[in-house]
C-alpha cells in the first residue's frame, strides 16, 4: 500500500465465490501490492457481499486492467445501441 491508491463503489449484481453465488454489493478497486500475482503492484478488484468471506478477487497487470475497462465500455456501448439497457 505504499501507493495508497484505493477506490470503492456500491454495485448491484451477483458473483460466484467459494460457497456459490452471492449478491455483490461493493467493489473495492486498488492499485497496490497483489497477493498472488508476481508483479510488484497490480490493479486489484474485490467484489464483496456484506460478509468479507463472500468475495471474488481479481488481480490484473495495468495493461490488462485497461483492456478490461475498454472491453466493458465497448460491450455497454453495443448494448445501448441495441436498446438492451433498460
Amino acid at each position: 500500500m505504499c501507493t495508497n491508491i484505493m477506490e470503492q463503489t456500491p454495485v448491484a449484481g451477483a458473483g460466484k465465490g467459494e460457497h456459490g453465488w452471492f449478491k455483490v454489493k461493493t467493489a473495492i478497486v486498488s492499485y497496490d501490492h497483489p497477493v498472488q500475482l508476481t508483479d510488484e503492484h497490480a490493479l486489484n478488484i474485490d467484489f464483496l457481499s456484506d460478509a468479507i468471506t463472500e468475495r471474488v478477487a481479481v488481480e490484473l497487470d495495468a495493461t490488462s486492467a485497461r483492456a478490461l475497462v475498454a472491453a466493458i465500455n465497448e460491450a455497454l456501448r453495443q448494448a445501448e445501441e441495441a436498446n438492451a439497457i433498460v
Partner: peptide, 18 residues
C-alpha cells in the same frame, strides 16, 4: 477491522481506506 485470513483482512483494510 475484523478477522479472517490475512488476505480477507487486507480487503477490509482497503474497504476502510487504510
Amino acid at each position: 477491522l475484523g478477522h479472517g485470513t490475512v488476505e480477507d483482512v487486507l480487503v477490509m483494510m482497503r474497504a476502510a481506506g487504510g
